[in-house]
Every structure is written in C-alpha cells, then in structure tokens.
Design a protein around this nucleic acid. Structure first.
Lengths: 346, 346
DNA sequence: CCCCACGCCGTAAACGTTTACAGCAGATCA
DNA sequence: TGATCTGCTGTAAACGTTTACGGCGTGGGG
C-alpha cells in the first residue's frame, strides 16, 4: 500500500506542469497532444484523484449526512431507501448517523456540520430542544428536518400529519363498533408522542367518547417496550376492544402479547399501528396501520436539500405529507386488505 | 452562512501563533495562560475544526464505507445495524453505498477507495468478478468482504455457510414428510445463488430424492420476482409440497402467491426462507427461515476492519458464521410459533 | 558569572488539489 | 514589419490543518 501517485507524479512523467494535469483531469480546454500525454501517464500510474485535497480547495465534499433516531426502526429505513437514490443521482454520497434518539448525539451531529465534512444534513429528531434550535439557527450548511419544528423556526422541514393520521384510525375503529379504544404511546416529550397523544384525545372527544386515563399507556417506540406497555395496560383495563399504537413496532409487541393471552385479533381486540412499515404488511395477522408517508418524506427531504445545495436561499419551506390508512386483518379480519386515502390533511 | 473562523482567526484574536492554537486544540503540552487565551478566543468565535483540512494533513478521514447490494433487503440492514455502532464506538463515521448489485457500481466503489475519502471498506457483493479481484488486489486501503471469495484471494472475508444452511432446511422438510421439495433461487451467477443451488442438489442426493429440473425455478432476490417465479413454478409443477426459497423476500412472494391460489401453508405447501430477517418472524404465517447470521457477519466484518486499521498487516483472515434454522409456522404450523415463544426462543 | 538544559513558542513547510495570472509562441492584421 | 490577438501553458498562491525545527527566556549547576 505504497503512497499513490499525485498530479505532481503525473506532471513529471508527462513532462508538463501540474496545472495542465489538473486541467486535463477536469476536462478544461487543452491541446490535444497534452491531453494525450497526461492521460497516458495517469493510466500508467493508476492515478486516482485525492478527493480530500479537492474538497479542501473547492469547499465541497459531495457528502450529505442523514441522522436518524434509530437504525432499527423500519420507518427510518424507508426514508433511507428513498433518500439514497435521490442523492446518489445528484452525485452525493450518504453519511449515516444513528443517534439512538439521544439529544447529545443529535447536537453532536449538528455541531459536526461545522467540520465541513458534509455539504448538508437531513435529520429526523424525536425531540426538538432549545439546544437543537440554537444549533439550527447557527448551522453553516443547509439542513432539512424530517419532523415538526416550532413555528417560526427558520429551517426547511418535511412533516407528517400524525394528528389526521390518528383521527383516521380512531374513526375507523369507531366505525367498526369499538368503543373502548386504548392508546399505547411513546414518550410524551417526543414530538410524535405528544402529537399522537393529543390527537387521540381530540378524536375521542369529537366522537363523543369519554377520555379515560386508564386507557392510556406510555412506553417507548420499540417492540419490546410495546409488549411491556400492552401487558401492563391489559392488566389494568382488560375490557379494551381496540388498541391504537403509536407506531408499528409497538403494535407488533401488542400482537405478541394478545396472542400469548389468547385474545383474538381483531375479534376481541382490534389493533392499529402507525408508519405502515414493511412489517405491518408482513405481520401475522397483517396489521392495519396509518401510513405517515415515510418514503415520501424521505424523498421530499432529499429534494429540498438538493434545492438548497443548488443555491436556493429563499424562505424556509415546509412540506406536509398526508396520512393514509392501510386497512388490514388486525382490524378488519382476514382477507381484508385495501387502503383508504384521505386527501389534503391540514 | 458566512465563512467560519479558522485557527488563523483564533491566533490573531488570542495573540499567539497558529501552531500554538493547534497545539492547544489537540491537547499538546502548553502553558496554562496560552491555553486559556486560545480556549477563550475559540469559544467566542464558535470555532469548529475543519475536518477536511485535518484529513488532508493527517491522511485519515475517520470514515468507513459500507457497500451493500440492496438497501431494500433487510439482510443488509441487519448487517448495517451491527456495523454502525461498532464503528461509531471506534470513532468512525459510516458512509453508505447502495450498488443495486450492479457490478460497475461495485467496481466504482472499490475505485473510489483510492480517492482517500474513507479509511476502509466493508463490501457485500453478490457477484465476484475478475474485475473485483483485480481491484481488491490493488486496493490502497483495508477491505473486508462479506461473502465468499475464491480461495487464495488476499482479502479478509466473513462468510455464511449457506450450504449447511440449505441442508438444515431440506432435512427439516424431509423430516416433516415432504418429498416434492422445490427450490426458488436467485440468479445462478451470483455467489449465493450458485452456492444455494448446488447445496439443494447435494441435499436431495444425500436424502435419496431425485433431482428434478422442473422443481427448480430461477428468479431474483426480490419479493416481486419471488412472486413471479413461484407462480411460474406452481403452474409447471402443481404437485410440489415444499418450497425452499433462496431468501426471505422470495419466500414472502411465495406466501403471497400461495394465499392467492388458496393453498394452505404449511398443510399443502411448506415454505422456508433464508436470512431470517425481521420480516420472517413478522410474516403471516410466520416464516421458517435459515439464519445465515447477517447480524453476526456485519459485526465480525466491522471488527476485522478495525483490526486492520489499527495496523495489523498479517495474513488475510476468514471468519465463517454457522447457520441456524428458525422453525416457525410456515413449516410447522400455527401452534408451533406459540410454544416456541413460550420457551423464550426466537 | 557563564553555560547549558528545558519549556514554550513562532516560522515555515507540507498534505494534493484548483485556479488567477502572466508569459509565450504563432497567427492575423494594418 | 510591428502590433494585436488567440490559444496554451507554467508559476504560484490558496484552501486549513499539523508538525519539524530553531529561537528565546528562565533557572540551575559548575
């Protein structure tokens, strides 16, 4: 692994200056003869351009960071799947960060924006703290947030409408005759947790159903946590006939527990998840789930960022992706699979 | 987004030289008073070190690339989930490449190793061509291959034992009384495709079952392709009583088709997947699958690479991860999943 | 009292590019 | 023939760090 050739090596061998080498390598107008000599030398030496040096001079790295809260969550992976090809097509590499929803790690990522190792950042924070907002305001490269930020925050963001999403799900359960609808949520100090909790309360109120604290269980957005939360909930309120889960992982945990306890889904208890991940369609029974458009959000975020990188420095933009309810067996029974779309969620 | 401060800016404000600033920032021995002045200036200016410039000088980027064949395949994501934290703990960032199994793209990634943008590479190619081997031999940074490479190739590699894996599955199906066991494979010019096809043939022979070309169907490693392949197979050979699928995505496609055609799983047709992804455990019915240890392989690869980066330049290493059969409902029937879970398995 | 050792510090070179600028040869024109 | 232009090319500076080296002031030993 000896030191590779540089443009200086090539210049010597081709008998030209490093400037000429650089010009040839970058396709700038050059005499044919020079081009030939440089190309020949470069080929013989197996030259590969040092991208670090180039970045230092050109102030661009062609790298973009994507910071997700949890690599294990398929919702983020769905975003990743869309982001990757969009950026690749535009000539950018993707640098991945998994912050495990730790605020300090996220701040760290934001901080590292200043290191100039990437040209831009897409971030999907679970919590948005004052520290986040401060760093965002001071960011030295374009950032797109996937998720909601306080009004007035000067940053592009792509948000889901989980409020309408929860509403769709609760209405669906109500229409199926369910009246003891419980909610299994993630932490309330997270953006989605807070939004979904509030939406649940609102939806019940609008349907004239009482809000019962006993029917609300807080856990976390993981499958194991979902199992734990649902077990606790069922012990406290065995009479529930529907579970509104704040994401698919929690819902899968719910299915685990219900199966263990011998409760039939959906006959005894209907279950709804959120995010409509691959796991929902594949689960057993298949899981009715509110799609919050993870894929669309990822794609939109990547496109917004590319706009900025092209030089757009206009007002911050906001894109909202409407939710959609994918109805499957866990509420409608076996064999039932199709989806309802609700247009123009606020 | 004005230009940020550099060590020169700090040096001026603190009234010292840039060398001193650098020393303080790197924690090299310095007079207390100087440290104080530099720190104060850096804080006031909101200085962040330019990592590109640092990399140019230090010849390290603290970045590692992971090139996977398909971001959409949960098997690679399982690797990613293990690789990410290992590298993060060692202070490396992860740069992601999705090559979509296109050979040219993979060669490109290998080539870009020379650009010095990363300190090392983990790659999981589906095909290993001569071009791959050439580039590997010439690589200017450590590489670890997840998958099999020809004997004698001088590169660290972590391989699955899909031969034994297929054997486990076929034996299992045989033990369940299945005798018309078909294989739905991916392309034969891929490393896993070739290995699994050969292993299937061997396993049948060892069990004294005839090898019937009609029972072998070639498709590709995606769900949609799996559906297509299985539909074709069933049309040609409706009498099959078991499907050995070369990965979980194909197997999910198989379940789709069987359900559409009203064939019961596993009563009429038993189905086995490979890779034992999250989708297998979550599918409907849950999918018996051969675990090839994706997670373990990812972890091992990351650890091998870190060894090399620490300076180990000994002989190429090889790690082989043993397969394991995860038995679920798609072969053993519904009750099985339940009892497995109670024993705390899976 | 002189010299040396030692601890800090500043100067300058280096990493490998890109690019502004000036120089130079040949062609064109008056 | 001399001036001007055109098309290439080379020199050198710059990007922001790290670091080898030598200088300088202080304190201690002879």
């Amino acid at each position: 692994m000896a030191d590779g050739p540089t443009i200086t090596t090539i210049a010597e061998r081709a008998g030209v200056s490093i400037a000429s080498v650089s010009r040839v390598l970058n396709g700038l107008p050059t005499r044919q003869e020079t081009v030939r000599k440089v190309m020949a030398a470069a080929d013989e030496l197996g030259y590969v351009r040092n991208a670090v040096a180039r970045s230092l001079k050109s102030r661009r790295t062609n790298q973009i960071a994507f910071a997700m809260a949890d690599v294990g969550n398929p919702a983020y992976l769905a975003m990743l799947r869309e982001i990757q090809p969009v950026l690749k097509a535009a000539g950018y590499r993707l640098v991945l960060h998994s912050t495990d929803a730790v605020v300090a790690d996220e701040i760290d990522v934001l901080h590292s924006l200043g290191e100039r190792y990437v040209d831009g950042l897409i971030m999907s924070p679970l919590r948005v703290t004052d520290a986040h907002l401060e760093m965002l305001a001071a960011a030295r490269a374009p950032v797109v947030i996937i998720g909601s930020v306080p009004d007035g925050t000067r940053v592009d963001n792509v948000r889901a409408d989980s409020r309408t999403g929860v509403r769709l799900a609760i209405d669906h359960l109500y229409a199926l005759g369910r009246r003891r609808i419980a909610m299994v949520n993630g932490p309330l100090d997270t953006v989605p947790g807070a939004a979904r909790g509030a939406a649940y309360r609102e939806a019940l109120a609008d349907l004239g159903l009482p809000y019962d604290e006993n029917l609300v269980q807080i856990g976390d957005f993981y499958r194991a946590e979902g199992r734990r939360a649902v077990a606790e909930l069922l012990a406290r309120a065995p009479e529930v006939d529907a579970l509104m889960c704040a994401n698919d992982l929690i819902a899968l945990g719910a299915l685990d527990v219900l199966r263990e306890q011998g409760r039939r889904v959906p006959e005894d208890v209907a279950v709804v998840g959120m995010d409509d991940t691959d796991l929902a369609a594949a689960s057993w029974p298949s899981l009715t789930s509110v799609s919050l458009g993870s894929a669309e959000r990822g794609k939109a975020a990547a496109e917004l960022l590319l706009e900025r990188l092209k030089g757009d420095d206009g007002e911050p933009k906001r894109v909202t992706v409407p939710p959609r309810l994918a109805i499957r067996a866990s509420t409608a029974g076996p064999g039932y699979e199709h989806s309802l779309r609700k247009e123009g969620g606020a």
